[in-house]
Amino acid sequence: MTPLDKTKPAANQRPKLPQELNILSVLIGVAIIFEILGWVIKGQSFLINPQRLTIMILQVSVIGIIAVGVTQVIITGGIDLSSGSVVAMTAMIAMSFAQVGTYARAVYPELTDLPVIVPVAVGLGVGLFAGMINGFLIAKTGIPPFIATLGMMVTARGIAKWYTEGQPVSFPSDDFAAIGDGVWPVVIFLGVALIFHFGLKYTRYGKFTYAIGANPQAARVSGINVQSHIIKVYAVAGLLAGLAGLVTAARAETAQAGMGMMYELDAIAAAVIGGTSLAGGRGRIFGTVIGTIILGLMMSGFTFLRVDAYYQEIVKGGIIVAAVVTDVYRQKKRAKAS
């Protein structure tokens, strides 16, 4: 029943509020809670400490880069569980092309001191390739995204371990290490977020992504090549996971097969807290950025208050579920109102 065309609901006569207002208020709320607790428990400010805030954003930049890719995957109605493992795989492989010649036990002793573009291209290529395989499996064989990317999650982690038989890869060139230096990870994260925020809004790629998530059959009948677009979306997600792998390795100046463990779940959580609907068709990068910052704020805040890591995880789990419950509730209210 849609009485809309008869009487305009009052809600629509008010000026429109940005959709992210809910999530933004959650962010502010979390910040204020930590600020108050800071004064009460430790007698000092939580927020007025630029160093702490910088470290906080640095900590979640890698998650943020992955979350951007995952957000667009979730908008198509899919999921990507492989990103954390792809981070490890690209970190290992890229690092093996970034080692300095003075290091005696390089993976490829004859391929040392290469220009930085080589490990970067290799890393992005590996990520892209992994994403394309995900997309191809999903689009062409029709298996659920959950299964396809679960397979990639296990396989990529295996490759990361197999590559050097479990040994870490270290001693990168200064140029490569510079990628992770200072605030570069934050710049890369925000740059990627900006590109995709506008990309999803103003390009055909973005419009098709939303359309496929909203109704794949209708998208097909509207002339969209759904299969090839799905492959593109997963490939982009893989590419961004690869980028995250580069940043992680560069920052740590070493690569290990255990890197990026559970990053995929943090990334999915950031997207979902930011208002992306797992049902597809709805979500924004801006929300994901805020979601990422909320995760960082909580991590940093608990550390500041010296709360045990165990409690941190328990609370984090609760917050993720609460975010989705709120979203579902809001959707229901909307549906009832119309």
Partner: peptide, 19 residues
């Protein structure tokens, strides 16, 4: 089933095929 993109706006629903 095969027409509307229900969660999207009227505008986006109208534009999609022409793009």
């Amino acid at each position: 089933e095969t027409g509307c993109f229900l969660p999207l706006s009227v505008r986006e629903n109208m534009q999609i095929a022409a793009l």
